[in-house]
Design a protein around this nucleic acid. Structure first.
Lengths: 201, 201
DNA sequence: GTCTATATTTGGATAGAC
DNA sequence: GTCTATCCAAATATAGAC
C-alpha cells in the first residue's frame, strides 16, 4: 500500500501544528500572563482564526493541560539527567540549584506547574502523575542520603520553594536569592543531620 | 449651626458603606478567587447595582488598593503588638509564627499582599509604604539580635515564605508545614550564628 | 447616591459552508 | 481543517434621568 506514508505524514504535520500552538501559547503567557492567554490571540500568532484551534484542542483548559504536561516532562527529564555523586551535600546542592534554576528561568512555567493558581484549571491525572514523579526523585535522593522522614522532605521543599518564590517575586532577573542557595543547603544539611541524630536516639 | 452634625453623619454613613463594600469584596474574593471578583456580584452583595459602586471607588483597581491597604495595616498593627522578649530565638519564633499564621489564615490576603499576582494591579505608593514598614519591623528585630546583614534578612524571609507557601499550596487548612516552623527557626538561628561568626573573623 | 440603559470590549465556544 | 458568522456570557465603565 502507498497510503501508509501519507497517513504518517498527515499525523506528523498534525503533531507539528500542535507543538507550534503550545510553543506560541508559552510565548503569549510569558508576555501577558498565564491567565491572560486568549484563544483569539493564540490563533492569530500561529496564523489561524480562533475556531480552528478546536481541531487541535477541545478547550482552553486542554491547552493549559498540554502546557502543564510539557513542563512537567521537561522537569522530569532534566532532573533525571542530573549528575549525582553520592556525596549528600553535593547532591542536595545539585538538586536544589536545579529546582531553583528551572523555576526562575521561566516564572510562568513555575506558576503553572508549582503554584497551580490558574482559576478553573486543574491538570489531568495523567499530567499530574508526571509531576509527582519529579518530587519522587527528590525523595529518593534524600532517602539515599539517610534522610528518609517525611518532615525532612517537607523542610527541603519549603526552603527550595522559599528561595525560588522570593527570587521571582522580589528580584526578578536578579540573583539576590540565587546567591543564597549554597548557603541554604549547608544550613539544611546541618539541620537534617541534627534531626537524624535526634531520631536515632 | 445645625449643619455640622448632619455633615458628620453623612460622612460617617459614607465611610460605613465603603467599609461594607470592602468587607464584601474580601468575602467574594475568598469564595471565588481574587481575580474573579466582579463588580456586579460585589454590588449585588451590598444591595446595589454595579454603577453605584462608582460613587465610592473610581475603578476596580481602587477597590483592590483599598483591600491591600487594609490588609497591610492589619499586618502592621498586629506585628507591632507582638510580645518580644529580647531572647533572639524566642523573638524570631514569635515573628515567624506571626507571619505564617497571618498568611495561612487568609490565603487570598496573602496572595494580594505578598504575591502581587493580580494582573494589572499595583498598590498605590501610599498603600505600598504601609507594607514596607512591615518588613522593616523584621529587619529591626534581626538587627537587635545582632543579625544585621542583608543576606541574613533575605534568608529569613525565604524560609518564612517557603513554609507559608507550601502550607497554602499543598496542605490548605492543614498543619503539615505549620509543625515545622519552630524547627525551621532553630535551624535558622543556628545558621545565622554561624554566618555571624564567619563575618566577624 | 442610586438607578436604568447602554457603550464597549472581550472572552470561549459552536454551526455550518467550503 | 479552516473559514465566516454568530451565539452567549461576562466584564468594566459611562450617560443621564430621578
Amino acid at each position: 500500500m502507498l497510503d501508509t506514508p501519507n497517513l504518517d505524514r498527515r499525523a506528523e504535520r498534525y503533531k507539528a501544528t500542535v507543538a507550534e500552538i503550545i510553543q506560541a501559547a508559552w510565548e503569549l503567557a510569558r508576555a501577558g500572563g498565564l491567565a491572560g492567554l486568549s484563544l483569539r490571540e493564540l490563533a492569530s500568532k500561529v496564523g489561524m482564526r480562533a475556531p480552528s484551534l478546536y481541531s487541535y484542542f477541545d478547550s482552553k483548559n486542554a491547552i493549559y493541560d498540554a502546557m502543564y504536561a510539557q513542563g512537567a516532562r521537561e522537569f522530569l527529564e532534566r532532573e533525571t539527567r542530573l549528575p549525582f555523586t553520592g556525596d549528600p551535600l553535593e547532591d542536595l546542592k545539585t538538586i536544589t540549584h536545579f529546582f531553583f534554576d528551572f523555576s526562575t528561568e521561566d516564572p510562568v512555567r513555575y506558576q503553572l506547574l508549582f503554584q497551580r493558581s490558574i482559576p478553573g484549571f486543574q491538570p489531568s491525572p495523567e499530567s499530574f502523575a508526571i509531576s509527582i514523579k519529579g518530587l519522587e526523585v527528590l525523595r529518593e535522593r534524600l532517602t539515599a542520603m539517610g534522610f528518609n522522614e517525611p518532615d525532612m522532605l517537607d523542610l527541603v521543599t519549603a526552603v527550595g520553594t522559599g528561595l525560588t518564590s522570593q527570587q521571582i517575586s522580589n528580584d526578578p532577573g536578579g540573583d539576590r536569592w540565587a546567591r543564597l542557595v549554597d548557603e541554604s543547603v549547608d544550613m539544611l544539611i546541618n539541620h537534617l543531620n541534627r534531626m537524624k541524630r535526634r531520631s536515632e536516639r
